[in-house]
Design a protein around this nucleic acid. Structure first.
Lengths: 220, 220
DNA sequence: CAAGCGTATCGTACTTAGTACGACGTACTT
DNA sequence: AAGTACGTCGTACTAAGTACGATACGCTTG
């Protein structure tokens, strides 16, 4: 876009790829669209990435790099909470990333650094190895799953929720799905409703529960 | 496969599609491969599905249909637990389903029935509308996220975990990622390790925490 | 300055996938 | 017996990934 065509670079390629995926979805990210965005031709890209799969791996790692690293010295609850909020924000900004995570199985450097920091914070916080495994699995399951739900919501705001609900309910006998109807009309379609606002409630609930079992002491 | 080519039907098409996705992944599910599996030609399929997108929608709904429906009369904790374990089992059996969930935004009949039952169980269990929203969001985030993690693990068993860990650590200065190394050697590579076994621990932790706040009473 | 070389770029074309269009056959109706 | 509707499929167009090899540009070396 504008200006003389600068030299290509792996950096520029990756940045442009993220831009396309953010703006138009993963489906719009093709070698051709990527080349066009960079004012070049598809085959020129293959000097910086060996194939599209490797490009996708790099994108995932790039997203992980955007997430706040927890600080190993600090209070475990504070650090885990901060990085979880950050992870959720970042993943919501790049909704295509989660779909990729599921397929890619070769973690990049930023991903590894991230995992290492999280494990370090939990261990330093007094969690046993086994409880560290539990805690990390639970927190990440929650974060990923929450983002996944956000991404698959058929609506963005209460406004569109209305229309969507109506269109879905069409074609079903009235009285079917009574709880869904109650939920939609009495909760989702209320003024201040915003699905995303629930994130921190659940996160704190989970962190509380983990704190209570940090060293194996039973519940309350 | 074998026998005279029976009459096609939407049922047979969907069943074959699920079979291919289970066996060889979503990527292997093409209109051509699907046609071949059914001893027919690609264009014949279009009499039963209007396009591939609609096929994918139908697949997602088919997967939801496999999940145990919670019983609205029963104890909320028992029912939510049972259906969550079932959901995790089903989604693990069809690992491609989660990737689809993220893109599809028009829920099918089985999906709606499922949501309705879950909401009903929670409401009947004494949860306020708001706490129902929280509880459902948290439980499902956990279930989805856990399955997502399982699906993206680079290994299936402790055996392969070993090899994978080694190959990943190659190319990094020794001493980098100390916590990751500790975690891998002291925990993941121990005899009985199995990531999936953590599922119920986390689920119970979350259900305990929800029970404690069911009606807004503070923590312990 | 000329010759040579490595690297970045790109033109062409092959392959796989989704699917539009319309022809064909079979079975059931009238 | 003739028509009709529906299921089937042959052909072909489009989009996308990428192999192969040619080209072009800039830097080194004699």
């Amino acid at each position: 876009m504008g200006g003389p065509t600068r030299q290509l670079s792996r950096e520029r390629v990756l940045r442009a790829a993220i831009g396309i995926a953010d703006a138009h979805g993963l489906g719009a990210l093709t070698m051709r669209s990527l080349a066009a965005e960079l004012n070049t031709k598809p085959m020129s890209l293959y000097h910086y990435i060996s194939n599209k799969d490797e490009l996708l791996d790099a994108l995932v790692d790039g997203v992980f790099a955007e997430i706040d690293l927890p600080v190993v010295g600090g209070d475990w609850r504070t650090e885990v909470r901060r990085r979880s909020v950050s992870a959720r924000t970042v993943l919501a900004r790049h909704p295509w990333a989660l779909a990729l995570v599921e397929t890619r199985t070769s973690p990049g450097p930023a991903t590894l650094r991230h995992h290492d920091a999280m494990l370090g914070v939990l261990r330093a916080g007094g969690f046993s190895l086994e409880m560290t495994a539990h805690a990390y699995a639970i927190v990440d399951a929650y974060v990923y799953g929450f983002v996944l739900q956000e991404a698959s919501l058929p609506f963005d705001s209460a406004d569109t929720a209305n229309a969507v609900a109506d269109s879905i309910m069409d074609g079903f006998p009235a009285g079917d799905h009574p709880h869904l109807v109650e939920f939609a009309t009495q909760h989702v379609q209320q003024p201040g409703y915003h699905f995303g606002a629930q994130f921190e409630f659940g996160l704190d609930l989970i962190l509380d529960a983990l704190a209570a079992r940090r060293e194996g002491l039973a519940g309350c």
